[in-house]
Design a protein around this nucleic acid. Structure first.
Length: 644
DNA sequence: TCTTCTGAATTTTTT
DNA sequence: ATTCAGAAGA
């Protein structure tokens, strides 16, 4: 361990931290597991830990902070630099995936990949899998009874993350497809071949190829492990087997690993995460010191009483009891509006009362299980001219028009990108799925033609349009434009198509202009595309930006790690949470319980739980909605019921 | 044979 | 909002 630096500290660790936090912050080295209950100062602990290490004389560049998003890493590092100084800026931070990417860019040739491999986002994976699904030989017998591309992508990813084999993942996630496993294996094999042949990596590959690299090349492993001598991992409960394995390899030279997490907040099993991962950490790193943070600084006592009660129904986990020293605070509110519309009006009413009480609306969040649960509320907010930002649910990058424009750019980088070509060719009038695919194949095999006449007879209805498209791609390849100029060029060509096909074309055009803005900091197009896949931009398009009167709407997943003065949970009803998709195994139901726990523990002063008495069923019309089982089982005295 | 149009069905959560 | 299947049209 490094010796204490000569500079005297101006940080008063003992004043700022409780004994458990202090112990975690000042552990000299070796493996440490911090079980940090909700609101127990987890971020503070990590931030002080970084500062402490630097003060001990550890080179900041040898510290790696692994978090769930790059934003989380930046946030922590900026807090640490406020505490200490700009030395902290040299600390590396990011996700497991971006770290994998960083390593692979340097060493991927040893794995038979080009250094300039491209990253596939989920949409790209689905597209590729769908293509394989339709074209594989011999063909899939009953394609209608075979899982959809999206389902396949989910299962493949789960299998890769959980490491239990495809059959096991099918059993766990989609048992009704168990008789299709053999064909699914075939598709999976073809998908692996496709990626390799096209120099592509999907999210899971960024982890599994890095693991492969570090396992097979002792020198590389030692170099990398020595480069980052102190590893800190946030949200460890949401890591999967791959990530745990990668961490083991990264730490192979020193075992200086501190992981922080809360098994009660594990909510990513669909991605192969397993909260037992955190229980098994001490087995992976023998000699682990376990520290529990149990004092809650976030919520009032009545909120804490409720959240403790929610999680006490869980079947497994590290034993811990959260307590607070603060007194007072009002009971959580339970509301049963008569319909979804009434729920939305009730939320608006809450917001206006909070506003009157002087609470800025950016201190308020509305949370829900699934992205579409807030559609009605979004309409109501717009009608009432209340600004909001929404996190989670539909992604900016996933909208068709963005993917179309990005496909133009991908094709300029890699003219052999079949699926990219197929996508943009289908925009030409008279070109559909067949012609598009066959032209794309020809281009991928023979290279980029100068003129349409090299591909098809000029009598074809679309050959003029094809000429223009080829000309554009050539211009993009040769032009010395900046990336945003390139995007503008594609946009100009694409706008007429947008206008013709979509009623909401003005919004879509704005999105595309915003896309051009996003490219401004970049000099390399490939870098831009890969960064977009790794860390998609925040959805700040709706409303007028994050003013102090902008209320947050968020899926519970996206609310992880955040906190607000007031949290309103909507659709706390059976059929919404637990999600009907989850009701198969008790295992999944337990995860839904943890979701409710995560949602409720985001609240500092006020918690409002809202469940309409009726819901709309597509087939049966208006049907009654029961309160979610996770609240139904809780005695009335934990709540204050409001009448509407 | 292939594209385009129409109406119907489906939509968890994310790096 | 998108995707899918089937039918009509080129």
């Amino acid at each position: 361990m490094e010796r204490k630096s000569a500079v005297t500290s101006h940080i008063d660790y003992e004043r700022d931290l409780n004994p458990a936090q202090l112990e975690a912050v000042t552990t000299p080295g070796g493996p440490v597991l911090v079980i940090a209950g909700a609101g127990s100062g987890k971020t503070r602990t990590i931030v002080y830990r970084v500062a402490w290490l630097v003060e001990q004389g550890v080179d900041p560049a040898s510290i790696l902070l692994l978090t769930f998003t790059r934003k989380a890493a930046e946030e922590m590092l900026s807090r640490a630099s406020r505490l200490l100084d700009t030395r902290v800026a040299k600390v590396s931070g990011g996700t497991f995936h971006s770290t994998g990417n960083l390593i692979l860019r340097r060493y991927s040739t040893r794995l038979g990949f080009d250094q300039a491999f491209s990253i596939m986002d989920q949409g790209d994976s689905i597209e590729a899998i769908d293509h394989i699904r339709h074209t594989i030989t011999p063909p899939i017998p009953d394609l209608k009874d075979f899982p959809r591309a999206r389902t396949l992508a989910d299962i493949f990813s789960h299998a890769s993350g959980a490491g239990g084999g495809l059959e096991r993942s099918v059993e766990l996630r989609s048992p009704h497809f168990i008789q299709n496993v053999a064909d699914m294996e075939r598709v999976r094999g073809e998908y692996e071949r496709y990626k390799k042949a096209n120099n592509l990596m999907d999210y899971d590959d960024l982890l599994s190829w890095t693991i492969r690299l570090l396992e097979d090349h002792d020198r590389v492993r030692a170099d990398i492990s020595n480069r980052w001598r102190h590893l800190l991992v946030d949200e460890y409960q949401d890591t999967n087997k791959l990530q745990a394995h990668l961490l083991r390899l990264l730490a192979s030279e020193h075992d200086n690993v501190m992981v922080v997490g809360d098994d009660s907040q594990s909510i990513y099993s669909f991605r192969g995460a397993d909260f037992r991962n955190i229980m098994e950490f001490p087995n992976l790193f023998p000699g682990t010191r376990i520290i529990k943070l149990e004092e809650n600084y976030r919520s009032t006592a009545p909120i804490l009483a409720l959240t403790n009660r929610i999680i006490s129904g869980a079947s497994e986990g590290y034993e811990k009891r959260l307590f607070t020293k603060t007194e007072g605070g009002s009971l959580p509110i339970a509301a049963r509006p008569s319909s979804e519309r009434d729920q939305s009006r009730f939320v608006i009413q809450c917001l206006s009362e909070l506003g009157d009480a002087g609470i800025p609306l950016n201190e308020v969040a509305v949370l829900f299980r699934a992205g579409f649960h807030s559609f009605d509320l979004e309409g109501e907010l717009t009608r009432n001219r209340i600004d909001y930002v929404k996190y989670g649910g539909f992604k900016f990058l996933e909208s068709l028009h963005i993917k179309d424009v990005l496909a133009h750019l991908k094709v300029t980088i890699n003219p052999r990108d079949r699926l990219g070509w197929a996508r943009i060719l289908k925009i030409l009038p008279g070109v559909g799925i067949k012609t598009g695919m066959s032209l794309a194949n020809t281009i991928a095999e023979q290279g980029l033609p100068a003129r349409a006449s090299e591909l098809v007879p000029s009598s074809r209805k679309y050959s003029g349009a094809l000429d223009e498209l080829l000309e554009l791609i050539h211009d993009l390849r040769n032009g010395a434009d900046t990336i945003s100029e390139k995007v503008d060029r594609v946009n100009r060509r694409y706008f007429p198509f947008l206008k013709q096909n979509y009623d909401n074309y003005p919004k879509r055009m704005r999105d595309l202009e915003q896309l051009a803005d996003l490219t401004v900091p970049y000099k390399s197009l490939n870098r831009f595309l890969n960064d977009m896949a790794l860390e998609p931009p925040d959805e700040e398009a709706s409303g007028s930006g994050p003013g102090s009167n902008t209320v947050v709407l968020s899926t519970i997943h996206s609310a992880k790690g955040l906190e607000w003065h007031t949290v309103i949970i909507i659709w706390a009803a059976e059929g919404k949470i637990p999600s009907p998709m989850a009701s198969t195994s008790p295992h999944e139901i337990e995860e839904e319980r943890r979701l409710i726990y995560v949602a409720a523990t985001r609240a500092k002063r006020n918690l409002v739980v809202c469940a309409p008495r009726t819901q709309l069923d597509r087939v049966r019309g208006v049907i009654p909605a029961r309160l979610s089982r996770f609240f139904e089982e809780i005695p009335d005295e934990y709540f204050r019921a409001v009448s509407l």
